[in-house]
Nucleic acid binder design. Structure first.
Length: 482
RNA sequence: CGGGGUGUGGCGCAGUUGGCUAGCGCGCUGCGUUUGGGACGCAGAGGUCGCCGGUUCGAGUCCGGCCACCCCGACCA
């Protein structure tokens, strides 16, 4: 029998990832290096992410709009840090309609500049504020090294852009959206994340401060899964985004931006998957329940199909995403393995014995083998499935949190820090926020600073950075990161 | 962009001391038997051997160049 599964995680985590993405039909390689084809199953997952986030954006007062893919090159050059930060990864269009363009067009790597330009026109008075906009779009960054979902030259995301009258309001917005991401990760994706502030090296080019949610993958690498920036008045000044306040005085706005991309799909894959393949969080899974009929002959077939069709209908009517696997060229055992690899949270089986006893079998993806399988009376099916979906969500979240917490350690000295990082875990230590300290850690361990977690007490006066010995500005997590 | 590797039916590979009709496994199509944890039999379909050039009576195989992809590093959501 040929090996039909994916490379085990323990053997080669990156190979496991690549295997799973392709075998589970999430994505495919495209003709152009570094770009990807998102297949229907992967896109359905993204659509569910979109729907959940979009609802949260609307609930917090944001409106969707769409800004153009092409940005005049001069726009990118108006904000000093922004130019420098993005210059190496820009795709630039120099020709159109067979002629060289007067001014080259940048394919957006992010939209602060075009949106800043528009905001400057839209905003006149304090009555126009706050302006709360989001767009769902594709962006392009010319990456050297790419990986499906985690880093591709073109990716899908949403980018929120807001303008406010005061610094405090902008900061409140920045933190609110970080919370939205963290809550989404926990409540929809079953991923516990750490909210924190980025070091200066990791800060967005043009931001005063960048915050992120960091998730731990099953190989203990960190994955930045969402970011929220307080842009201060940097873009307001570069694009002349001004308003008249109540005293008829002209003021610069305070702006923010925040984004979450298809990288979240990678976070879900690597944050939950096991040696069998994907494990999708029930609230985002494109298929929440897969129904597998089992029969030996035509008599049984008609009885079983009738029963299972009714069961599927009942679940569907209750709003559950169900797929009936009625393929006849593969046997049930194959289907079990196939759907487990694809990460479907719940499997419903109906066989002759179930028809006879008016029952169904339900198996949960997060608990392997017989332990995770139960037979329930048909009238209890719907309530059991509903309960299972919630229970699987809670269990996946708990497992991920326990795994993460088991691999977080505090370091009191540089040696301790190196020891923790070399073992592959995350180290939390007082850090002065400097680039030279970060470089030193990276040289020693390949790990970088992930964030200063928001959830921490202020350090006692004079606490030393474990790397440089200078005054620390807070405790930061360091880890290997994608 | 540096280091390593790989390009042979859809996928995974063998064939590489040049030799005639390029094989194997999986998958695919048809028919039949199967079906509660990755079924089996029989019959089929499917290949400009990554591309270009060279050597040779003869190139998947040797030589040169190019391209693509994967892995590891440096840079990044």
């Amino acid at each position: 029998m040929a090996e039909q599964g994916v490379t085990p995680q323990s053997e080669d985590f990156n190979a496991w990832y690549t295997d799973v993405v392709q075998r589970a039909d999430l994505a495919d390689y495209a003709p152009v290096r570094g770009s990807m084809i998102i297949k229907p199953y992967g896109y359905a997952l993204w659509e569910n992410i979109q729907a959940a986030l979009d609802a949260r954006f609307k609930a917090t007062g944001h409106q969707n709009a769409y800004f153009p893919l092409f940005i005049p090159q001069s726009f990118m050059q108006k904000e000093a840090e922004h130019v420098e930060g993005f210059a190496p990864e820009l795709a630039i269009v120099t020709h159109g309609g067979g002629k060289e363009l007067e001014e080259p067009l940048v394919v957006r790597p992010t939209s602060e500049t075009v949106i800043g330009h528009a905001f400057a026109n839209w905003i006149q008075s304090y009555r126009d504020l706050p302006l709360l906009i989001n767009q769902w779009a594709n962006v392009v960054r010319w990456e050297l090294r790419t990986r499906l979902f985690l880093r591709t030259m073109e990716f899908l995301w949403q980018e929120g852009h807001t303008a406010h009258a005061t610094q405090a309001e902008a900061q409140a917005e920045t933190m609110q959206m970080l919370d939205v991401y963290a809550d989404f990760a926990r409540d929809q994706a079953a991923l516990p994340v750490i909210k924190g502030r980025k070091s200066d090296q990791e800060r967005f080019a043009g931001a005063d401060a960048t915050y992120s949610i960091e998730a731990m993958m099953r190989n203990r690498w960190a994955l930045q899964s969402g970011t929220s920036h307080n842009l201060g008045q940097n873009f307001a000044k570069a694009f002349d985004i001004k308003y008249l306040d109540e005293n008829n005085e002209l003021q610069f706005c305070w702006t923010t931006s925040w984004g979450l991309s298809t990288r979240m799909v990678g976070a879900i894959i690597m944050g939950h998957g096991d040696d069998q393949g994907l494990r999708l969080p029930p609230r985002l899974a494109p298929i929440q329940v897969v129904a597998v009929p089992i029969f030996r002959n035509d008599d049984q077939k008609s009885d079983v199909m009738e029963a299972i069709t009714a069961a599927v209908q009942e679940l569907q009517d209750a709003g559950i995403r169900v797929h009936l696997d009625n393929r006849e060229n593969v046997n049930p055992g194959f289907k079990f393995n196939d759907w487990e690899m694809r990460g479907v949270p719940v499997r419903l089986e109906v066989g002759p014995k179930d028809v006879e006893k008016n029952s169904v079998a339900l198996a949960r993806r997060d608990v392997p083998g017989k332990e995770g399988k139960q037979f329930v009376d048909r009238p209890q099916m719907l309530s059991t499935v509903t309960g299972l979906l919630d229970s699987i969500h809670e269990n996946m979240l708990r497992e991920a949190a326990e795994f993460r917490d088991a691999h977080l350690h505090e370091a009191a000295t540089f040696d301790e820090m190196v020891e923790i990082l070399e073992a592959g875990d995350w180290a939390l230590a007082p850090y002065d926020g400097s680039a030279e300290a970060e470089d030193k850690v990276q040289e020693a361990t390949k790990a970088t600073s992930r964030c200063f977690p928001l959830d921490q007490e202020p350090l006692p006066q004079g606490t030393a950075c474990v790397i440089t010995g200078r005054d620390a500005i807070g405790k930061a997590y360091f880890a290997r990161a994608y």
